[in-house]
Amino acid sequence: MTDELVLRLLARLHGHAGWLAVAALLHPVIVLRSPMRRARGAAWASTLLVSAVAGLGAGLYPSYRALLKQAIFQQNPTVGWWFERKEHLAVGAVTFAWIGLLCHLAAARADSTSQKRLAALAHRAYAAAFFLALSVATIGTIAAANRSF
């Protein structure tokens, strides 16, 4: 397999897994609305999935920068700048998912006063991660439709 084919496959995988991660992040947003609800499996799975997708994106980033970035900016600067935004928002999506997971785990061990606030913070963090991941996936799809490996 050529390098170009590998890059193309990884980029497709990144895109599809990205939308899966968005769907996975919606699960804790829904179930953690109730502060007493425990959803460790959903929290772990969605956080690990969004982290893996971001890791794959970070792995593709040097190739994007070397092979595509300049051409995208020459052809369609708006898409280029949106792609830059996507990377910044992706950092937020991953970190907010981890904040949500940690607060959800902490809530199970906290005293009753802190428990409700930790649960609320976990829910808000997952909601933020979902919103950011949805933005990232949407921008990524638009950018990929414009130009890809």
Binding site: V91, T95, C103, A107, R109
Partner: peptide, 20 residues
């Protein structure tokens, strides 16, 4: 993981997007 260490890690994780 204790509640204290999870809370510490959550705060530290919030520093990442903030600093970025």
């Amino acid at each position: 993981m204790t509640a204290r260490s999870a809370l510490t890690a959550a705060s530290a994780f919030a520093i990442v997007p903030l600093a970025y």
